[in-house]
């Protein structure tokens, strides 16, 4: 906050309280992650012996050595990076264009289009019809199958529409007077004013694409096209005793390996946020909206 205002005693108490509470919350949220990291650097016997720790007694790089000794995981990360970047770009283009168009209530049938969108939040076709569609489109075993079926999130589209509604009319009007078409207004006025929203949904879509393994499971049969999350899922469910006994043929993965795969599979996407964070800074969208 730029404005300096005198702080009341109550406000000061609130501040102290606020800082401390947030620190505690943050701590509670990060400590388990420390365990995952520590566990990934520790040994099997230590993981079996100690229920929880954040500093391993014996430091071991074995899990990571294994992960990086095969091309699989690196390739999986490569696939995920590609799908995430390409997918996010496609998703943003679709969501922002459609969102902008639907933010204009003068558009004929505008309400119906929104109903069309909202209906899909509630009802979905299901796994088998979607699979048959993907097959008929010829997308099986193609990376497009990891992008197109989830290229838009109807919920997020609705939020984007609401954000676009808040763009001051006056700005758009003056651009139009300067001879801009709707396309021009969208490109020159609406998008530049919406950087925080773009950053937000870029992040949401990126996280969605990165985390998706189910589409890969259904549509990808060539394991060189497996995204890293499917590799993770496969390792995590190998010892799944919930649905029956563990298969004798399957050599159980080490616990530290599982944790290391979690680290390898999630840290890259975690790094996206700090990177985008500066776009969430105040004042990117002109404040005159609300006044």
């Amino acid at each position: 906050m730029v404005v300096k205002s005198h702080n009341t005693p109550l406000g000061r108490v609130f501040d102290v309280f606020n800082y401390i509470i947030l620190a505690i919350i943050a701590l509670a949220m990060i400590v388990p992650f420390f365990y995952v990291i520590a566990g990934s650097f520790s040994t099997e016997s230590e993981l079996a012996r100690r229920a929880f720790f954040i500093i391993p007694e014996t430091f071991s790089l074995n899990a990571y050595k294994y992960i990086f000794s095969t091309p699989t995981f690196i390739r999986g990360i490569g696939v995920s990076v590609f799908v995430t970047i390409a997918g996010t770009l496609i998703s943003l283009s679709l969501t922002l264009t459609m969102g902008y168009a639907l933010s204009k209530s003068r558009l004929i049938g505008h309400k119906w289009y929104i109903y069309i969108v909202i209906f899909t939040i509630i009802f979905q076709g299901g796994m088998i019809p979607t699979y048959l569609l993907i097959r008929d489109l010829g997308l099986l075993n193609s990376l497009w199958a990891l992008i197109l079926p989830i290229a838009m999130n109807p919920m997020w589209l609705i939020i984007v529409i609401s954000f676009f509604r808040n763009i001051p009319k006056e700005l758009e009007e003056s651009a139009r007077i300067d001879g801009c078409t709707d396309l021009g207004v969208f490109w020159k006025i609406a998008l530049p004013l919406s950087k925080p929203i773009i950053a937000t949904f870029a992040l949401f879509y990126a996280v969605q694409y990165w985390g998706d393994y189910f589409n890969a499971l259904l549509y990808i049969s060539d394991n060189s096209k497996y995204p890293v999350m499917l590799l993770l899922q496969n390792i995590m469910t190998m010892a799944d005793t919930q649905f029956g006994e563990v298969d004798t043929l399957v050599e159980q993965p080490d616990e530290s390996l599982k944790l290391a795969v979690i680290v390898v599979a999630t840290v890259p996407i975690m790094l996206v946020y700090p990177f985008l964070q500066k776009h969430f800074a105040k004042g990117m969208m002109l404040g005159s909206v609300k006044g």
Partner: peptide, 23 residues
């Protein structure tokens, strides 16, 4: 131009959300 902006997204919804709706 607005319809042009609307179209790709709308097609996406029809193809990927409504075609499988027979399910």
């Amino acid at each position: 131009w607005l319809f042009l902006l609307l179209l790709p997204g709308l097609i996406w919804f029809l193809v990927f959300k409504y075609v499988p709706m027979w399910g």
